[in-house]
């Protein structure tokens, strides 16, 4: 028997690439929910993770690609009871990340955005990191421990 395997935390990983279209928002939420189901998340934990994924994916579509075409890269890694989710676009990028993350800040009020997306990601996940370069794209990495 492999001793190292025994002591190491169980690890599982997946990646999906999909088109930046609004009908894929539900698909992204469901894919992550299904992937983390072996951790037996509570209904609340599942709703928290689904909301965070929905916010990040919606941002790629509306802001990153400005509702035009592009690909969204979703990765999800489970190590022990911690889920790490990366959501990346190759869109316009964010000039001022700190300002973008402030609650109620939005650059698209005319599209009925209210600037709550990052606030929800931060409220529902344990950790949220945003990496972006203008003209290159944006990557959001979020972590959440399932089961306390």
């Amino acid at each position: 028997m492999n001793n190292r395997e025994d002591t190491m935390e169980k690890q599982n990983e997946m990646q999906i690439v999909f088109d930046a279209r609004s009908e894929n928002e539900g698909f992204a939420r469901m894919a992550v929910a299904a992937f983390i189901s072996p951790l037996n998340p509570t209904i609340d934990e599942l709703a928290d993770v689904k909301t965070a994924v929905s916010e990040a994916v919606t941002n790629c579509i509306i802001h990153g690609y400005r509702q035009g075409s592009g690909k969204i890269f979703l990765e999800c890694t489970v190590i022990g009871s911690t889920v790490t989710i990366g959501i990346t676009d190759e869109g316009v990028g964010i000039i001022n990340i700190k300002q973008a993350m402030e609650p109620m800040f939005t650059t698209r009020p005319e599209l009925e955005r209210s600037g709550m997306g990052f606030a929800f990601m931060e409220a529902f996940m344990d950790d949220v990191q945003v990496y972006s370069s203008p003209g290159k794209g944006t990557r959001v990495v979020m972590k959440r421990r399932i089961g306390g």
Partner: peptide, 13 residues
């Protein structure tokens, strides 16, 4: 059963 910030936007709009 599920609503995110887009739901807030459409109600406020």
């Amino acid at each position: 059963e599920f609503m995110d910030s887009s739901g807030i936007g459409v109600i406020l709009g």
